[in-house]
Design a protein around this nucleic acid. Structure first.
Length: 569
RNA sequence: GUGCCCAUGGCUCAACUGGAUAGAGCAAUUGCCUUCUAAGCAAUAGGUUGCAGGUUCGAAUCCUGCUGGGCACGCCA
């Protein structure tokens, strides 16, 4: 049950006025607070406090209100009856489904073939996945698209690089027969070094560069040998990606379809653009003007083809929109990428709208900030290189292992990995999406305070209580202590938090909620004994009932963030 | 140059989108384990919310102008 919504609606019904319900920061002011009198006073031409006094009796009439009073400049503070709270808490873990479920295409991940995942893939994966889970939990139909980099120039470079390493392979012959088996295996780890190596080499060697371009052109027009080789390393890369998805504990993508798939639609899209006379030639390139007269900001043209006649990032992205419109016909298309791509997406949305492919106002770009090191600059590993995802995992794992040893505990590798992943993911989700944040291994690994391990630890403790308790039948709490009450109030904020997180596209609300909830749980746990021998049976059963609800809510919250709870910590 | 984002205790972040006495966690000091997992709980200290104006009952939040930072601005993706 969404207590806030319930109370808000009942009050508005009673007053015949849409006032904003607030939860006072200071608990002493009560459970809720309405500024209705202050808002109404203006039109009524009355003193807010006086008006509040007139409204007060109506508030008292509501059956869930224990007490209400006028305070400050004209707030009406109210406290909810304990037995009402207890009753409401029984359904605290339920998420109210969306009234109008919609279809949402979500674009996140965007992994690359023949290039290992790096720190830049972390936020898109984690935030995108959590938002996907939130949307699903509300009953929306979602499709996650991993728009992989599997086409174009990078593939030319990778093929050229393999040719350089293994020129004897038959793939490079123009008369290659796709039916002939080739005895050639590529090492997964090694493959990930190909594209970066080739790219660096190409910068120094123009001949290699142009050779790779040649290969790319032949490859895209159907060279059988190149294509056979491509399929070989594509399969390996997809396997690597799936491992990462599983290691990150994010939902499998509905589509691992990227640039290559989008390229199939370029012809259809170009036809539309030509019919609308949107493509212009300029400096040898084919461009689309997206500037509006009202723009007061830089708005370069959209690059349909570069001056070498090649398809661009711009063109495949538009083709991808066309494809999604055709396959899913979504009500929304949401992109989760680095904030620095904002201008690109603004352009894409305009072109899609102008061409009639997909309307501007159904697009959203959720741009996230940069992950920085302790020095405030983009996070690098100790050797000064851009950090790979594996580096991040290793750093976190090592830190957790060290901590476990420090406490003289014995945990298996799986548990350590689970904790390390929680540390990384929770820290990522905790921050406002669009702001940069500092990834400081030392801080994450201190494991005290607002961290993933703290959250997991809380869940482990609660699970442990339930395990020890065995069967029980929950009874109502007759007299609530403040710790029980605070916990119940927090539990009743769950549904509201999830709704807000979806509406505001703010995944950090979920992480912050998890932390607040855990604080309440731990205070309750500390002050309210449950299984101790001196605890009377009715209190024990009532508290066990509360623990059960807390576990349900916390587990759902953790699920939304893609965190797993270990058996012990 | 143009535009976008940001600025909150020593550090990292909140503040439910305009509400009451700006909250947490690190770090510091100090209490609490023969009783459900002390990776916990509790207490003390730490603030003119970058600066200056404005809007109103009320501003960290909205507007204007500064200052200081990050980012983007046609052939990278």
């Amino acid at each position: 049950m969404n207590l806030y919504k319930y109370v808000s609606e009942k009050i508005n019904e009673k007053l015949g006025f849409a006032a904003k319900l607030e939860t006072p920061r200071n608990r002493e002011f009560g459970d809720f607070s309405t500024n209705a009198a202050m808002v109404m006073a203006k039109s009524a031409g009355k003193n807010p406090r006086e008006l509040a006094g007139e409204i007060l009796p109506k508030i008292h009439e509501l059956d869930f209100v224990k007490s209400a009073s006028v305070a400050g400049p004209g707030f009406i503070n109210l406290t909810i009856k304990d037995d009402f709270l207890w009753h409401a808490a029984q359904t605290a873990a339920q998420i109210t489904p969306a009234e109008k479920p919609i279809i949402i295409d979500m674009d996140y991940g965007a992994y690359n073939v023949a290039k290992s995942l790096h720190i830049g893939h972390l936020r898109t994966s984690i935030v995108g996945d959590t938002f996907n889970r939130i949307a699903k939990s509300l009953g929306h139909k979602t499709f996650s698209w991993n728009h992989i980099g599997d086409w174009g120039k990078p593939m030319g470079l990778v093929i050229a690089w393999i040719e350089r390493l293994h020129p004897e392979l038959p793939y490079f012959r123009d008369d290659f027969n796709p039916n002939t088996p080739v005895d050639f295996e590529i090492d997964e780890q090694e493959l990930n070094t190909y594209y970066p190596a080739a790219s660096a080499f190409a910068k120094e060697n123009p001949e290699f560069q142009s050779h790779a371009q040649e290969i790319k052109a032949k490859f895209q027009s159907g060279h059988p040998g190149y294509f056979a080789l491509y399929e070989k390393f594509l399969a390996i890369s997809l396997r690597t990606m799936n491992k990462t998805v599983s290691r990150l504990n994010i939902l499998p993508f509905d589509y691992d379809l990227g640039e290559r798939n989008a390229a199939k639609y370029l012809g259809s899209v170009e036809k539309i653009l030509r019919e609308k006379n949107m493509i212009y030639e300029n400096d040898g390139a084919e461009i689309i003007n997206v500037k509006r007269d009202t723009d007061n900001k830089p708005m370069p043209p959209y690059m349909w083809r570069d001056s070498r006649g090649a398809d661009t990032y711009d063109s495949t992205d538009l083709a991808a929109v066309y494809c999604r419109k055709k396959t899913d016909n979504p009500d929304k298309i949401i992109y989760f990428t680095d904030l620095r791509q904002s201008l690109h997406f603004e352009q894409l949305f305009r072109v899609a709208d102008m061409s009639g492919i997909y309307p501007y106002d159904k697009f959203e770009h959720i741009g996230y900030g940069t992950i920085n090191g302790a020095d405030g600059k983009p996070f690098k590993t100790r050797d000064g290189n851009a950090a790979g995802l594996d580096d991040i995992f290793d750093i976190a794992n090592d830190a957790v292992r060290a901590r476990v040893q420090e406490f003289d505990k014995k945990l298996d590798d799986d548990t350590i990995q689970t904790i390390a992943l929680a540390a990384v993911k929770f820290n990522d989700l905790l921050h406002d999406v669009k702001s940069d944040y500092i990834f400081d291994p030392a801080q994450i690994t201190s494991f005290e305070g607002r961290t993933g391990p703290y959250i997991l630890y809380t869940a482990v403790r609660l699970n442990s209580v339930l395990r020890r308790a065995g069967d029980f039948s929950a009874t109502a709490i007759t007299e609530m202590c403040s710790d029980e009450r605070n916990l119940i109030m927090e539990l009743l904020d769950f549904d509201r938090t999830i709704q807000s997180a979806f509406n505001e596209r703010a995944t950090d609300l979920v992480a912050n909620y998890a932390y607040d909830l855990c604080q309440m749980v731990n205070t309750f746990y500390h002050n309210c004994p449950i299984l101790r021998e001196d605890v009377p049976a009715e209190i024990r059963n009532a508290r066990l009932g509360l623990v059960k609800i807390a576990v349900d809510v916390l587990t759902k919250t953790l699920d939304l963030m893609g965190l797993k709870v270990p058996n012990e910590m």
